[in-house]
Design a protein around this nucleic acid. Structure first.
Lengths: 173, 173
DNA sequence: CTCTTATTTGAGAATATATCTATTTTAGCT
DNA sequence: AGCTAAAATAGATATATTCTCAAATAAGAG
């Protein structure tokens, strides 16, 4: 499962609802991964997400179509997808691993109270320069700005609110 | 445990080995937290870390001095310290919560292969502007640039290396 | 279209991580 | 020294992730 070569191909034909599955198929082929119904279903769900689903979230959604699928399959597929660059793993502070189906350049807002993560676009941030001293040592895969905030909901709730458990609260963004 | 007011005080007298415990004491007092031997020991360990320890890491270290301390105490103390702004919780992709004893402005390099997190300083990044449209809605607590890379070790190890388990591998940075 | 094989799936157990509860201990005040 | 609210502890529980291996199957070969 090579990770190095993926970058040059990313976004070849990702646009359009029809093209998404072609893209998925192509990337899987390139990495000698079989196209299974489970993987297709998982990928479809990811493409319908505008937030940052956890494995558990995907698992719960997919079960309505696919009652026998195992959590293990969902989780392993997500990790595999991340390895071949179909999706990303989001940096988070909540202790639950979250995935990001959006591979276009974007940035994140983390609420330090509730752990929610919001996406935002900002052209200025897309083109920040990375020092040569770093690119000499590290192979750069991506970059992003992360803002730590207290979100409007948590501001409303006031100062003494504990972070909520994210168990079973949709994808938790 | 108020989170809002902390910013203005950060770095009041943090410099110097001697000053660190004074600072700790002062912040605890301000938040009506008791100065217990356990908390002091945990804070000392944090101040000796140049990386991003997990609760488990701190727990294992502290046990050599403090054989009876419980994991619960360590974990709760770390969360408390984060709440009062003595340390930060680091965004990570490994599924293990990590803490950052360094509260000065700095940025992170995440290895997407092994999950290690490296700190770096870069003046240009410290002063990136945050759009008004965001600060109007969100209460800004901090900001940072996160670079996603493959680290030198993982480059050396080649393409087909799986992410290593971080169980018992020091603090895992 | 069928055979073959390496990959993938799924069930259950194991491990890792984090939190809760109830009880005992103690820091810090008087 | 005594009091009291806060904190520490042990143990149980909840949550999240990974492992193991037998059974199922995608995809290429014939």
């Amino acid at each position: 499962m090579e990770l190095f070569e993926q970058q040059e191909f990313v976004m070849v034909h990702k646009s359009g609802v029809a093209g998404e599955l072609d893209y998925f198929t192509e990337v899987c082929r390139r990495h000698n991964l079989k196209i299974t119904p489970q993987r297709v279903a998982i990928y479809r769900i990811l493409m319908g997400c505008s937030d940052h689903p956890s494995a558990d979230y995907v698992f719960r959604i997919i079960r309505s179509d696919f009652p026998n699928i195992s959590f293990e399959t969902v989780n392993r597929s997500l990790l595999t997808f991340a390895e071949i660059g179909l999706i990303a793993i989001v940096e988070s502070t909540s202790g639950v691993r979250r995935f990001d189906p959006d591979m276009d350049s974007h940035h994140h807002i983390h609420c330090v109270k509730c752990g929610r993560i919001f996406d935002f676009q900002h052209g200025d941030y897309d083109c920040i320069a990375v020092p040569d001293s770093l690119t000499e040592k590290f192979s750069l895969v991506g970059k992003r700005v992360v803002l730590h905030v207290i979100c409007p909901d948590c501001i409303k709730k006031g100062l003494s609110v504990e972070p909520v458990s994210e168990k079973h609260t949709s994808a938790g963004t």
